[in-house]
Design a protein around this nucleic acid. Structure first.
Lengths: 195, 195
DNA sequence: TTTTATTGATTGATCAGTCAATCAAAATTA
DNA sequence: TAATTTTGATTGACTGATCAATCAATAAAA
């Protein structure tokens, strides 16, 4: 079977497998063997391509972030007004892929990892900044800048918080309710300040 | 040194040490040796008293939760009106102890662990319920029940979200700003519905 | 003497990471 | 075209380190 040009396919398969295994397991304490098995290759091959477990994990979070960014970009393109773009950003956060239990579990695992891994933290900070930036940019036309920044902080916190609470699987707050709660926050805050 | 009656002291020392080590390390992947060393005893003794690492970890989160509950109870006692009690609940969440980077790191680690450990999840669900219940109880006199439940979800999400964002250490949102943001949410939401 | 506290030494399991060997396609040469 | 060499893909077997857990032994109170 050894054909040339396997590398990109194997890398993708391994990253996808890692994401799945991490999501199922709910933790980064997964073995290279598990990931490799899930990808249908030997553990040695995973090391061959990624050098270390840490590197594979980093590529994995990079992939997670890229997926989210692509979704956001697509959603933003389809929205015409600032207010619609705000809704789009919110909706994407709670969209099926992102809000699936395994995806949430993976995010949570990476947040925990960020306490130790400088590189992982960098990625999450990028996510946080991007979310904030998207929010502020579309709030600016609707209210004063300082208010926009204030609301953006609130929305971002609420989104992250709803994720966490979802991860426990205890609340009855599903995707729809989460969107409604966040939208409601934006609407009421905007009503209070601008006109 | 072997004196009778060491057990409770050792247990407490070990639980406290575990909390410190987990907070510093930002992960539950800490060794019994580290914890024992921090507590000034041998690893074998930790096993002697707790039976397993998992059990020690469970006692540790139990302790974390108890600390928070005690703080909440104290704060609630000192507040006279429902609105003041709401503020008290919010303030406690962001109080120095709770909001210290190590404490937040520990919480985060336990949230991640809850994906795997049924018992850990149970404790976190209890925390979520208690927070919700405290909020609803004090919102009820101020607005209709369904609105109270709605606001409670929002406040809880915002608190948890501000924790997560704090854990990255990237935002400039400190304890005071977090309190202000949450208070603001309550105030504006209440203004919208009741009078 | 019995009970409680305590530890050093050890075990067994788990894993990340390495390495030498194999296999088949591709490139090169004859 | 046929024979060869080279190269990339792939793995099984191994190593070294780490750690939770165990246990037998010791020491000091009761």
């Amino acid at each position: 079977m050894p054909k040339v040009g396997m590398e990109p396919m194997r890398r993708k398969a391994l990253v996808d497998a890692a994401l799945r295994v991490i999501g199922d397991h709910g933790s980064l304490s997964v073995t290279m063997s598990e990931i490799a098995k899930q990808a249908g290759v030997s553990p040695a091959l995973a090391h061959h391509y990624f050098g270390s477990k840490e590197q594979l994990l980093i590529e994995t979070i990079r992939s997670l972030l890229k997926q989210l960014r692509d979704d956001v970009v697509t959603a933003l393109k389809a929205a015409a007004t600032p207010r619609a773009r705000l809704s789009a950003v919110i909706r994407v956060s709670f969209h099926a892929d992102q809000f699936a239990p395994q995806t949430i579990a993976a995010w949570l695992a990476f947040y925990a990892e960020a306490q130790r891994s400088e590189e992982t933290r960098r990625f999450l900070v990028i996510y946080a900044r991007r979310l904030r930036s998207n929010l502020v940019a579309n709030l600016k036309p609707l209210c004063p800048l300082d208010v926009a920044e204030h609301i953006a902080e609130g929305v971002a916190a609420m989104i992250d918080g709803l994720y966490i609470r979802q991860s426990l699987g205890s609340t009855r707050v599903g995707a729809e309710a989460s969107i409604a709660l966040t939208e409601d926050y934006v609407t009421i805050q905007l009503r209070g300040t601008a006109r």
